[in-house]
């Protein structure tokens, strides 16, 4: 591993990135400490937790290549039928790999 020389600003930028990321990791918990967690808040939180994943995945499914789409489709189908995550994930990856080799 080379010794850090001549580029002191790189480390500063990395530290700033780390702090910004830490703010995001702590900010949500901190903000919620001022909110009493009642029935309505729980409904919101429950709905939002699945929605984070869906919102993350939607553009991947739409803008991805056919390999990506087939992978997601395979994972969904195996998950619905076998209800086991590991075969579902492995199947998705395998399909993407095979499709892209063609």
């Amino acid at each position: 591993m080379s010794i850090e020389t001549g580029n002191p600003s790189a480390l500063a930028i990395i530290l700033i990135m780390a702090v910004v990321t830490l703010v995001t990791r702590w900010g949500g918990v901190f903000a919620m400490s001022f909110v009493p967690i009642g029935y309505r808040v729980k409904r919101f939180i429950h709905a939002m937790s699945g929605s984070v994943l869906v919102a993350l995945l939607a553009p991947l499914a739409i803008t991805g290549d056919n390999g990506a789409r087939l992978a997601l489709l395979t994972t969904a189908v195996i998950m619905l039928t076998l209800k086991k995550p590991l075969p579902a994930i492995a199947g998705g990856i395998l399909v993407a790999a095979l499709f892209r080799q063609m």
């Binding site: 699945g50 997601l72 994972t75 998950m79 209800k83 579902a88």
Partner: peptide, 18 residues
Amino acid sequence: SLGLDMVMGCFLLAMVVG
């Protein structure tokens, strides 16, 4: 090319579907 970019996507989708 090995489908490895889909690991996280497939994992998170399996969580949603499950």
